[in-house]
């Protein structure tokens, strides 16, 4: 396969290692369990504002969210957004949109840009057609 690197053009897939579903970018916000302040810190907060600390029920919800994040993946026959790492290249992580049936590649972005856009946007998950980085943005 050839991966259309957004900075370096078409590069052979042999230079990349594959991780999988791009939803791995959407790591759930983890609480600081020892803090006592009420829940509800603003989402998409910059890093120096740690996510708000939750109550006990939130902990169960956070663990459930992590379980989904770590273990559950869609496995679509069709358009899929996935993470590729240019390990033998510029060490960029890419979000590649690929049709898993035809292997047609519909686009590739720097994962960092995708992650930053998500933070700046509404926090929509990295699902096909839903992220702020997708064409719907215009």
């Amino acid at each position: 396969m050839l991966i259309p690197h957004p900075l370096l053009g078409l590069r052979d897939a042999q230079e990349f290692s594959y991780l999988g579903d791009a939803t791995l970018i959407d790591r759930p916000a983890a609480p600081a369990p020892d803090a006592a302040a009420p829940a509800g810190a603003p989402s998409g907060a910059p890093p120096d504002d740690e996510p708000g600390p939750p109550g006990a029920t939130d902990l169960a919800a956070v663990e459930a969210a992590f379980c989904d994040y770590v273990f559950l993946r869609d496995n679509p026959a069709g358009v899929h957004r996935e993470l590729w790492y240019h390990e033998q290249g510029d060490r960029s992580w890419l979000v590649v949109t690929r049709d898993t049936v035809t292997h047609e590649i519909l686009g590739a972005e720097l994962a960092r840009d995708v992650a930053l856009a998500r933070r700046a946007g509404d926090g929509a998950p990295a699902m096909p057609g839903q992220g702020p980085d997708r064409e719907g943005q215009a």
């Binding site: 791995l24 790591r27 890093p47 390990e87 960092r112 992650a115 930053l116």
Partner: peptide
């Protein structure tokens, strides 16, 4: 060595790009 570096790049670029 390679795996840790890869994972750290993942964390830097994908999880906490604003650091």
């Amino acid at each position: 060595a390679g795996l840790v570096y890869r994972n750290m790049e993942f964390a830097r670029q994908c999880l906490w790009p604003d650091l």
